[in-house]
Design a protein around this nucleic acid. Structure first.
Length: 256
DNA sequence: ATGGTTGTAAAACAA
């Protein structure tokens, strides 16, 4: 079972790249973030032509998440039960047999001290509540997506410069640690202990060419699921293309 | 240096 997550920064702009990547990598399930389109305009038929099913939860201009899969999920939840309209389309969850996949686009947060920063911390707290109320720690479960947080110094190209900045401030790192504490394992770190591996590079200042990146896209699995993880990686190839997303896809393989 | 780039959508705003 090969699963992946990719913040595509507009599914309509990135569609040819996403389709080509799916054909080349043949993943079973691909979670998308920042689709940036309403559900009526999601390019469903293009995915269907490749034999994929899609569950999507989008909105105009901003945010939007989707789960692309070879098989149709048995249950889908869009947004958290605690959320009331209007709320951003940042969360979608699907069940494939006994495998629970949660796809999230955690808010960026702009800068510490702002309203958006507090919203980010609140959103992560809501995600933890969702886990507490809707799931059990002994499930085969993964949370994947754009977390907009680099968990550790080795996930940042210049941790001293980034200390206290958005994506690497202490309260954000503590907030996503409450997800780890619930019982999740960062699949990438099962296999790779060194720094220098990133999933996002700013469009500006030739950041990708100079590998000035952060590892903010993650696939975190329960202990039970992580036991069967045979591979986890970041595929930086799509970031090298013309008109790339600023994020690279992350993948994890499970022997289930 | 409060810069730089991209997407949406039509002037800012979000990232």
């Amino acid at each position: 079972m090969l699963i992946a997550s990719w913040n595509v920064n507009s599914i309509n702009v990135r569609l040819p790249q996403v389709l080509a990547w799916l054909e080349a990598n043949k993943v079973d399930i691909l979670s998308l973030q920042e689709t940036k389109t309403i559900d009526d305009k999601f390019p469903l038929s293009e995915f269907k032509n490749l034999g994929y099913h899609v569950e999507y939860f989008g909105e105009k201009t901003y945010n939007g998440v989707a789960i692309v899969s070879k098989t149709k999920p048995s249950a889908v939840q869009k947004g958290f039960k605690a959320e009331t309209e209007p709320f951003s389309r940042r969360f979608i969850e699907a069940r494939f047999g006994n495998l629970h996949l949660l796809n999230c686009y955690i808010p960026n947060g702009q800068a510490p001290g702002t309203d958006k920063y507090q919203y980010k911390l609140n959103w992560i707290s809501m995600l933890r509540q969702h886990l507490d109320q809707e799931h059990k720690k002994d499930e085969l479960l993964a949370i994947m997506g754009d977390f907009n947080v680099a968990p550790e110094p080795r996930d940042v190209y210049d941790p001293a410069e980034w200390e206290g900045q958005i994506l690497f401030s202490i309260p954000e790192r503590q907030a996503i640690h409450t997800l780890i504490d619930w019982g999740l394992i960062d699949t990438f770190r099962i296999f790779e202990k060194e720094g220098g591996h990133y999933s996002w590079w700013d469009y500006r200042q030739a950041s990708f060419r100079r590998n000035l990146g952060l590892r903010i896209d993650h696939i975190w699995a329960t202990t039970k699921l992580a036991q069967s993880c045979t591979r986890a990686a970041i595929d930086i190839e799509p970031r090298k293309l013309e008109r790339p997303s600023d994020h690279a896809p992350v993948i994890a393989e499970f022997n289930i």
